[in-house]
Design a protein around this nucleic acid. Structure first.
Length: 254
DNA sequence: ATGGCTTCATAGTGAAGA
């Protein structure tokens, strides 16, 4: 099973990229974040024409998540049951016996912002919910835009980012708390190139200078670790016209 | 560079992203 996550930054704008990428890569599942689209506008017909099913939870302008898959998603769940929220950030479904959880973690804006407190509370709720979900579904994959660079090696210039969201210690502690539930960062199960990132600012020619962060992740449960045979970042989409600022992360689970 | 893009909702700019 080839499974991927991508913050698409507007599915309306990036639908051609999405369809091309599906056609070339043929993943069994692609989890999207920041679709920025109401459900009535979701391009289901185009995806079906490409041979895919989809479940989605969107809203106008902000947020929005989707799971695109070759097989019919089962037991679909929308949002965190223990954290009522207008913001569409979570969708989960079972595919081929594997629980697939697609998340768009809040950005947090800045350390002194209310949005940062919301981010930390949201992450605590995610962790609490996953504790139970892992009992129900030992084979679980948590994919998405975590908006957390777990370690300094995931940051192009750690000094420059000190005091920022995405790298703060409470956020990194929340990431480690997920790992303590038995989830493993699939990217780090394998040898990887140095300076591997999944997001680059649109400004400052950041991509060309590789001034990026690794904030999109695929975590696999302990039961799936032996089945995970690869994980990589696909930088190619960042080189296209009108790219998303994020690129896909892809994992193979046999 | 307390923001150099990009998106969306707007019909001027402003919010938000990371």
């Amino acid at each position: 099973m080839k499974i991927a996550t991508w913050n698409v930054n507007s599915l309306k704008v990036r639908l051609p990229h999405t369809l091309d990428w599906l056609a070339v890569n043929q993943p069994d599942a692609l989890c999207l974040q920041e679709t920025k689209q109401e459900d009535s506008k979701f391009p289901l017909a185009e995806l079906q024409q490409a041979g895919y099913q989809a479940v989605f939870s969107g809203q106008k302008t902000y947020n929005g998540v989707a799971i695109i898959s070759k097989t019919v998603p089962e037991d679909v769940m929308y949002g965190l049951p223990n954290f009522p929220d207008e913001q569409r950030r979570v969708i989960a479904a079972t595919l081929n016996g594997v629980r697939v959880v697609c998340v768009y973690v809040p950005n947090g804006q800045s350390i002194d912002s209310d949005k940062y407190q919301y981010k930390l509370a949201w992450l605590t709720a995610l962790q609490n919910w996953l504790k139970d979900e892992l009992v129900r579904y030992p084979k679980l994959v948590l994919l998405g835009d975590y908006n957390i660079a777990p370690e300094d090696r995931d940051v192009h210039d750690p000094q420059a980012w000190v005091g920022n969201v995405l790298v703060s210690e409470p956020e990194r502690a929340a990431f480690r708390a997920l790992e303590q539930l038995g989830l493993r960062d699939s990217f780090r199960l394998f040898e990887q190139p140095e300076k591997s990132y999944t997001w680059w600012d649109y400004r400052m020619m950041a991509f060309r200078r590789n001034m990026g962060l690794r904030i999109d992740h695929i975590l696999v449960s302990e039961a799936l670790v032996p089945n995970c045979t690869a994980c990589s970042i696909d930088r190619s989409l960042r080189k296209l016209e009108r790219p998303s600022d994020h690129v896909p992360v892809v994992a193979d689970i046999v």
